[in-house]
């Protein structure tokens, strides 16, 4: 097992290198660069542009260098822990990410927890009651969240939260708590705002989870050993918990790695609508403004999270399914 883990860690290196190259390609793809975007925005509002500032910036950030040079200087920076400089915010990227990480974790983890709990409950429930009315009803509820476009759902929920509960429009807390130290009131204010993004992002993820759990559980439940066990009079609940559910959780676990980027993607759109100060939103803004180092380092950061997540999920998979483990792991 140790050797397997070491191997996997080693394999991560080329993966991350490839990711970094793709990330850089992506942030270079849109035409123009940050300064052009900035100039266009300024001029379109009739604002004069300080050509000197632009020229100085161009020089300072090496935007005149060839993309290859820019890539390597960025990559070496990354290796040394220098995530680069954000043009838009005029600060080091690491500071920016650091500022948002707490709220991002709160939102992401609440959401993942929500997805797991809801899909686990509904998924197991419907799989054991295939084709019943309650199966269809529960499935419908599980899917509704997926079917509703996130941004509209968020908008409507936000409006009604404002109308009914007098929750302030947008943001993760009331305006007066911004820039304030953490306090009881601030916590409550965050909780008051948090449920909307969690539900909106969460419901779009639960449907997939429910489906996979249900599909796998149904597969499993029809296998011989289950029939045998049932024939031998094993208690249905014990039977369900002992083997089929665990096996059915296989792809469930395999998805730890992919659920994270999904939640972050989802949170980005919702964050735009709800004006949440979380990383997903900043990433979108950075991409839009072509704030390349911010966007790039950010994507890199997320990609790393996912790569580690995938590794963990593979390990968990191996631990859970002896067949995979005994035959030497997924990579063999």
């Amino acid at each position: 097992m140790l050797r397997y883990i070491a191997l996997r860690l080693l394999v991560m290196i080329p993966t991350l290198l490839a990711v970094s190259a793709i990330v850089f390609l992506i942030i270079q793809l849109p035409p123009g660069d940050y300064l052009e975007t900035l100039i266009a925005e300024m001029q379109s509002r009739g604002e004069a542009v300080d050509q000197n500032q632009i020229a100085a910036l161009r020089q300072a950030y090496g935007l005149d260098n060839s993309p290859v040079e820019q890539y390597f200087s960025w990559l070496f920076g990354l290796l040394q822990g220098d995530f680069g400089w954000s043009f838009e915010h005029n600060r080091p990227v690491s500071e920016l990410i650091g500022q948002r990480i707490l709220l991002t974790f709160v939102v992401t983890f609440s959401t993942i927890l929500f997805i797991w709990v809801v899909s686990f409950v509904i998924g197991t429930y419907v799989a054991t009651r295939q084709y019943s009315v309650s199966d269809h009803t529960a499935t419908l509820i599980g899917y509704l969240g997926l079917a509703t476009p996130n941004f509209l759902l968020a908008l409507v929920l936000m409006y009604f939260a404002n109308q009914w509960f007098d929750t302030s429009i947008g943001g993760i807390m009331n305006d007066e708590y911004r820039n304030q130290p953490w306090s009881w009131g601030k916590m409550l204010s965050v909780l008051e705002h948090l449920w909307i993004p969690v539900i909106v992002i969460g419901t779009s993820g639960t449907a997939g989870m429910i489906r996979r759990l249900r599909a796998n559980l149904l597969d499993e439940l029809q296998k011989q050993y289950v029939v045998t066990a049932r024939a031998k009079g094993l208690h249905p609940r014990k039977l369900l918990w002992k083997y089929p559910l665990r096996v059915a959780l296989n792809p469930f676990i395999a998805d730890i790695g992919s659920i994270l980027p999904e939640v972050i993607s989802g949170s980005a759109v919702v964050a735009v609508v709800l004006n949440l100060d979380i990383t997903g939103r900043m990433l979108l803004d950075a991409l839009r403004a072509q704030d390349m180092f911010l966007a790039g380092s950010f994507l890199m950061f997320l990609a790393m999270l996912v790569v580690i997540g995938t590794l963990l999920s593979d390990l968990a998979l191996a631990a859970l399914d002896p067949r995979i483990r005994l035959s030497g792991g997924t990579t063999r």
Partner: peptide, 16 residues
Amino acid sequence: IEVLKSFPRLPLWMAL
């Protein structure tokens, strides 16, 4: 697959 899936889908869509 890992490389492609390592990205949040939406930003990748956006950029592309």
